[in-house]
Design a protein around this nucleic acid. Sequence first.
RNA 1: GCUCCCGUAGUUCAAUGGAUAGAACACUGGACUUCUAAGCCAGUUACGUAAGUUCGAUUCUUACCGGGAGCACCA
Length: 527
Amino acid sequence: MKENIEKLIKEALKSVDLEAGAFVVEHPTDLKMGDYSTNVGIKTGKAKEIITHLEAEPPSGVEKMELAGLGFINFYLSKKFFKESINEIIEKGEDFGRNENLKGEKTIIEYTDPNPFKEFHIGHLMSNTIGEAVSRIVEWNGSETRRACYQGDVGIHVAKAVWGILKGEENPYPAGAKAYEEDETAKKEIKEINKKIYERSDEKINEIYDSGKKDSLKKFDVIYNKLGTKFDLMFFESESGTFGQRVVEENIGKVFEKSDGAIIFRAEKYNPRLHTRVFINSEGLPTYEAKELGIAKIKSEKYLYGRSIVITGNEVNEYFKVVLEAMRQIFPELAEKTTHISHGMLRLPSGKMSSRTGDVITAEALIEEVKKKVKGNEAVAIGAIKYMILRQAIGNDIVFDIEKSVSTEGDSGVYLQYAYARTSSLLEKAKVSTWQVDTLMTGPTREIERLLYRFPEVVERAEKEYAPHYITTYLTELASSFNNFYAHEQIIDISPESPYRLAIAKAFNIVMKNGLTILGIPAPERM
RNA sequence: GCUCCCGUAGUUCAAUGGAUAGAACACUGGACUUCUAAGCCAGUUACGUAAGUUCGAUUCUUACCGGGAGCACCA
């Protein structure tokens, strides 16, 4: 439709001897201004001539055109177009909204990344929600995907937890973290443990470590199941560390250099906005940076990706740029394929959420808390939480008040689920065999009809900008217009227009289901 | 001090360089003998400041003010 209008405008421009310069055809901000709009009249100053030319032979599917505002030409689509679009939605069903833009592409997406021995907290929940939505968006645009989870099973945080276990602490990690800060002896012991974990040189520590890791992973699986994520590939820092270290050591003198006993990368040599970071510390252990370098290569060996998306919190933004610069020097082809997407933090009203002090809200606790507000319905609770995360641009923080901030009315996950459940039960009641319709409607076209056909465009745009919230915003607008329709018209009755109204309800039901699926929000049939 | 991100209604968030800046929450009022009222309708309130680019700037540029994150062995 859009392409068709653009083409006809170009022909119209030609007829008035004008170059087809930069103009756009887009949906106007307000439905009152039509279904499509172009600024070509403003750009050229020839709005009247263009519209006259277009009216001589209007684009198919366009019912009328209007000159409006500052010189915009607005296009209103025909009833026939809407009828056909509704039939198309019904015909495509659960595939409506998919496209093949990324056909043949292989994408690996890394997200969630919880650390064994530590809690799965609401920050992980945020990463998981965003990562799952991005994965599905990429899939709906035709790419093959692999979901990857990269977990910190070695490093000082693990040593702190193991120390806590050795001391018989009830909450090993927080206890270890506290001791590390406050007690010099404990700090030494923890560092010693850290080294032993790397070397696997101590029988007792190995045993604690192995069983602790296994328990953690089991607990994570329970929550992934609850959230609707299935990882294809599990990576661990224990493997990336060893490999990353080797890569760094092989490039000393070329990319890396020794300094104060550590091995560092001077990123500012390549980009003045970046800074120096340590890749291998003076105790000979790889840091986050070396591991990140290693994991990029390891991933590519497991899955020959064309694109690698890494989703993390935005507090690592600056490190990641340095790591990417180092990667450009060593694995330029991988750096080229890597995109870092960072999300904001879930912030508590009191400040930054911290796992160091043990002051964390676990994902589990949050889900239970929200469940209390929604009659114990877990699907609704998870939907409410995911909606909160996916309704806004992913780079921004969410200020998080466990009492107030998870909305269960209005602009919320519940709102979408409820509209879906309501149509599901309505459709069941209708007892019809075919949903598609032949007859056109009398009376004005409804807002809902004018939004439904746009869903595939939203899916495309969400992929281009890695912006799940476009889908959330669209679904909310769609649900609102459906609820308006539902409240003002009897859908099932004996009138000859009832089948058309049912077709709208069916099409809405399909789009809402598909949209919720992409977001990873459960769509219960009944509420 | 340097680098990066962010300042939109009382609050939480939207707005591919365009038209009257949208929702939701909260507040006030309203409709229903009918398909799920977790719903519908109506009303009040906002682009941090100052320049610049542009026919047109919330959007792009610069400066300032305010908030956040990071700046060598934690991730």
